[in-house]
Design a protein around this nucleic acid. Structure first.
Lengths: 229, 229
DNA sequence: GTCTATAATATGATAGAC
DNA sequence: GTCTATCATATTATAGAC
């Protein structure tokens, strides 16, 4: 990076053969470029769909040439697959964080907050996931189905145990989970409609907080046991 | 074109010049053909997106030739626009049916049922609407925004009046409406995921009823006033 | 109104120099 | 690794006969 090569167009690409960590830097640069491309692809895919996005548009947004992009990714489909797979990491993680020994209302409340925060901070991921599933998840389903079912089944058991302990009013755990997903993701996926109707979006802190409170109230209000007496 | 033309491929296209209602029949046939094409387009657009669907595929599904399709619709985009516009009729109608003088829980309950029934019986419409909005509703927004806002604002007033009368616990009306939309539409749009997780879909009557009951419980449970004492 | 070419273009992907 | 052609193909739309 300190070499005499100061090409302003690609400052990250000046590996010095003298340095011992050249290999590492090279790999980093490569990784960064791939990430940049994938990030650009995610954005564009989520806005215009996969088939509505050209390789050239992605290349431009990722600040590489079209053929250079195809050097890093064998094909557009391969790029799409990698973007989708990368999505799943972001997507499945929040569900892992709720456990039976915790207070159900608090746990569900946290989960709603995490999901709504995800909708605010990663709308492109939410939208692309949405479109993929809406269209039948041709790519996603094989990879998603098994881990998703396991995760959901585990959480269903947790919810059922809460109900048995009287900590939660009786409710179908599957539909409870679906409802939380549906509502929280709706604020990302349908943000255009929401903004059209309310004039607000989740990036406005007051609106975020109001939304969070309302969603909690609606979802949790019907399943919170009343204090006896 | 006279009665002797019994081409079996297109049985609906045999208008007899002798009959006085030839004009009418012709227009009907034309309308039917347009409807068939639009119906095929809706199905394919909802499955593969607009850009993932070719005119030829639509033509095949609609049982017309590609060039014949382009005789009825000036362009693919024009066809798409008409499909989307046709959607709105189906889409905005159910919201019209709730009024202030009715019982709120019953009214909201009916609305949820109507919306969930729509998800069961018109999943393609739901999905295409979803994809269009997710992608920013480039076509839809101009047409949708104004009538949607009016409708929503009117319903918000109804809900607020219910709350003032103590018939409904305090809740943000906008988020209540969004939540109902989100959950009910989720069962159409994400049906692949729901089937993957539960093994069921809304076309199974038991599952439909269980879903309806759960959604009602979750949505209405938190906003139904408790009987005093 | 319907069909068979065919034009016009867009786009994914490759070849080969550097 | 990156670039400049360029190929190969898919696809929208049109022209013109019937």
């Amino acid at each position: 990076m300190t070499s005499s090569n100061n090409d302003p167009v690609k400052p990250e690409k000046s590996p010095r053969v003298f340095k011992p960590d050249t290999q590492k830097k090279r790999q980093e640069a490569l990784k960064n470029k791939r990430n940049r491309i994938m990030s650009a692809a995610l954005m564009l895919f989520s806005k215009h769909g996969v088939n509505g996005t050209t390789v050239e548009q992605i290349a431009e947004a990722g600040q590489v040439s079209k053929s250079n992009l195809l050097y890093y990714f064998a094909s557009k489909e391969q790029l799409y697959i990698e973007v989708i797979q990368h999505l799943l990491d972001v997507w499945l993680s929040p569900l892992k964080s709720f456990e039976a020994h915790q207070d159900p209302i608090e746990t569900l409340s946290d989960y709603i907050k995490v999901k709504l925060t995800l909708s605010r901070d990663h709308p492109a991921e939410s939208k692309l996931f949405c479109m993929e599933v809406v269209q039948g998840a041709p790519l996603l389903l094989n990879e998603l189905e098994s881990p998703l079912c396991e995760l959901v089944d585990a959480k269903v058991k947790v919810i059922n145990s809460w109900i048995e302990q009287g900590k939660l009013l009786p409710v179908d755990p599957y539909h409870l989970i679906f409802s939380i997903w549906a509502i929280t993701q709706h604020y990302a996926d349908f943000n255009v409609q929401i903004t059209a109707v309310t004039g607000n979006d989740l990036n406005q802190p007051e609106f975020f907080n109001r939304t969070l409170a309302s969603v909690k109230q609606i979802i949790l209000g019907g399943i919170t046991p009343q204090p006896q007496g």
